[in-house]
């Protein structure tokens, strides 16, 4: 069995975002980067399957981006991936979802992966396209937004999360790709021995130009904060004062405090 998990490194979403010089994406200065949260669930699920299948199973982690993404790759290796592919691209953020998917597909095309795991979406771009597009490009069975996963002898059984807490159970034959929703499992923290072991695992670097042959299908023309709607009151300052103000407002504007 050959497994692939695709991860993205994203900024801490608690950060303040400022447009870059071109005004089409965020300025990376002062941002701290980490593994996309959805991808942590994808890695965990892939590692669990890797452990269940044991010897003869190989799990590769892939990430596209500048040198900083090696940190996210190392975390995935410490969580239990066997080896890694770093697609080196200092301009990854300017690629559209079609191009990102095309890069992954070009890498995976001849490698015979049985199952590919991805996050359901990235926390920064959030297109929810890349995983499904890879499946289409490679002709794989695919299901999305899974909150449970089971594999047995060439068949995946999964539950998809629908609206209102309803789930749809589906069965699909491998080769397949699944996109992972939050809550699918409990992603592990890498232990120190595993972090040390991960240092010896192989990270293959590949230049993006060797894989990308597709032009972008869409272009970002602007990155900006939402227009402030106004209306809402913003209160700042000393906690005791804030409490007094909030109680006065609640008494004035709502019927819940007398």
């Amino acid at each position: 069995m050959k497994l692939l998990v695709c991860i993205k490194q994203v900024p801490d979403l608690e950060s303040r975002f400022k447009p870059d010089a071109a005004g089409v994406w965020y300025n990376e200065t002062d941002l701290a980067f980490r593994m996309n949260e959805y991808d942590e669930y994808a890695v965990e699920q892939a590692v669990q399957l890797r452990e269940k299948l044991g010897d003869g199973c190989e799990l590769t982690v892939l990430s596209i981006g500048p040198d900083r993404v090696v940190e996210a790759i190392k975390k995935a290796l410490a969580m239990g991936c066997d080896n890694a592919a770093h697609i080196q691209d200092s301009a990854a953020s300017s690629k559209d979802p079609w191009q990102i998917a095309s890069i992954i597909s070009a890498y995976a095309k001849d490698k015979g992966f049985d199952i590919i795991f991805t996050g359901m979406q990235s926390q920064d771009r959030g297109s929810a396209q890349v995983g499904v597009t890879v499946a289409e490009q490679l002709g794989l069975a695919c299901t999305t937004t899974i909150t449970s996963f089971d594999y047995d002898n060439g068949t995946i059984t999964a539950k998809r999360e629908l609206e209102g807490g309803i789930k749809a159970a589906v069965k699909l034959k491998t080769p397949a790709l699944v996109t992972c929703q939050l809550g699918l499992n409990i992603p592990r923290y890498p232990t120190l021995p595993n972090i040390m072991k991960a240092k010896k695992k192989e990270i293959t670097a590949i230049a993006v130009a060797d894989l990308l042959k597709e032009a972008a299908l869409s272009t970002t023309t602007s990155f900006h904060p939402p227009a402030k709607k106004g209306g809402g009151i913003v209160l700042e300052g000393d906690v005791a004062d804030l409490v007094e103000k909030v109680i006065a407002i609640l008494k004035d504007k709502t019927a819940v405090l007398r």
Partner: peptide
């Protein structure tokens, strides 16, 4: 929706059309 984000990229890829999400 869970239907739209699952199906739209498949249609877009088949047509090699741009997809703009959400």
């Amino acid at each position: 929706s869970s239907y739209g984000w699952d199906l739209a990229p498949r249609v877009a890829a088949s047509l090699k059309a741009a997809q703009i999400s959400e």
